[in-house]
C-alpha cells in the first residue's frame, strides 16, 4: 500500500506560515532527504532571519539560529569544527541576497561543504512585504508603491547565475514547487546538494522560487500562477552549475 506521511526529520508541529506559503513544502522536502539519507543525527541546520526564522522548531535535527544574513558564516563555523557532519542553511532572499551577500558569496567561493536552501519569493515576507533584492522590475511592494523602478532601485539579483561563476560551487540549481512534477525536481536537487556535501565536493545552493500569497495579495492558488507567469520568465529554472569542485 503506498504511503505518504510526515518525514521524521520534520517536527510534528503546526508551522506559523501563512496558508499556502510554500515554505512548508520546502521544509518537508529537506526533511525527506534527511530521512532518506538517514542523516538526521548527523545534520545541523542554520536558520535565517525572515519568515523562516523559527525553522529551528520545525526540524528534528540540531539547529542554530543565525543573525540576519550570517547563516553561511555560522554554517562555516559549524562545518569547519565538524567536517564530517551535514550542515545546511535555510535562507530567504532578503537574508541571502541583500544583507548576507558577502557571506553567501564567500562561503560559495571557498567551496564550503555546506548545502544552502534559498527561498526566492521576491519580497520581505516577515516584515510585511517590502522590496527584496529579488523583487521583479515593476513589482509593487510596500516600499516600491509605484512598482520597482530600475532607475531608482536597480535590478534584481539573480543568485544562481551569479554564484555559478564561482569555482567553489558544486551545485547551483533553480527549482520551484508549484506543481507535483516540480516538487519532485526540487527534492532531487536538494538530494544532489546533500550528496555533494557528503562527498566533500563543494558548495551547493538550491534556489526555490516560492510564493508569498499574503504579501502578493493573491490567493495561494493565484500565487502559484504568478510564479509560472512572472517569476520563471525572469528567473529561469534549471541547473546553472553542477560538478564536484574537489
Amino acid at each position: 500500500m503506498p504511503e505518504f506521511k510526515r518525514p521524521h526529520a520534520l517536527a510534528d508541529v503546526t508551522t506559523h506560515y501563512c496558508p499556502g506559503c510554500t515554505h512548508g513544502i520546502v521544509h518537508r522536502l529537506v526533511a525527506e532527504v534527511i530521512d532518506e539519507m538517514g542523516i538526521e543525527g548527523e545534520t545541523i541546520g542554520v536558520c535565517p532571519v525572515g519568515c523562516s526564522v523559527m525553522a529551528y522548531d520545525y526540524f528534528e535535527c540540531d539547529m542554530l539560529e543565525a543573525a540576519h544574513g550570517r547563516a553561511p558564516a555560522v554554517a562555516t563555523g559549524v562545518k569547519r569544527a565538524n567536517p564530517d557532519k551535514f550542515v545546511f542553511t535555510y535562507q530567504g532572499d532578503g537574508d541571502l541576497a541583500a544583507i548576507g551577500t558577502a557571506e553567501i558569496v564567500h562561503a560559495a567561493t571557498r567551496g564550503e561543504n555546506i548545502t544552502v536552501i534559498f527561498i526566492n519569493n521576491t519580497t520581505y515576507g516577515m516584515t510585511g512585504g517590502q522590496m527584496a533584492p529579488t523583487t521583479l522590475p515593476g513589482q509593487v511592494t510596500q516600499t516600491t508603491p509605484y512598482g520597482r523602478d530600475t532607475s531608482n532601485e536597480g535590478f534584481p539579483v539573480k543568485v544562481c547565475e551569479m554564484l555559478s561563476q564561482l569555482d567553489g560551487v558544486a551545485l547551483a540549481e533553480r527549482v520551484t514547487v508549484i506543481d507535483p512534477a516540480n516538487v519532485r525536481k526540487a527534492k532531487a536537487a536538494i538530494r544532489k546538494g546533500f550528496e555533494f556535501q557528503k562527498n566533500k565536493q563543494g558548495f551547493s545552493i538550491i534556489e526555490v522560487l516560492s510564493t508569498c500569497p499574503t504579501n502578493w495579495g493573491k490567493t495561494p492558488v493565484e500565487a502559484l500562477e504568478r510564479v509560472k507567469t512572472e517569476m520563471i520568465p525572469y528567473y529561469p529554472l534549471g541547473v546553472y552549475k553542477e560538478g564536484a569542485v574537489r
Binding site: K5, R28, D179
Partner: peptide, 9 residues
C-alpha cells in the same frame, strides 16, 4: 505532495 502543512496523509 503539494500540502505545505503535512496535513494530508
Amino acid at each position: 505532495v503539494m500540502c505545505p502543512d503535512c496535513a494530508i496523509t
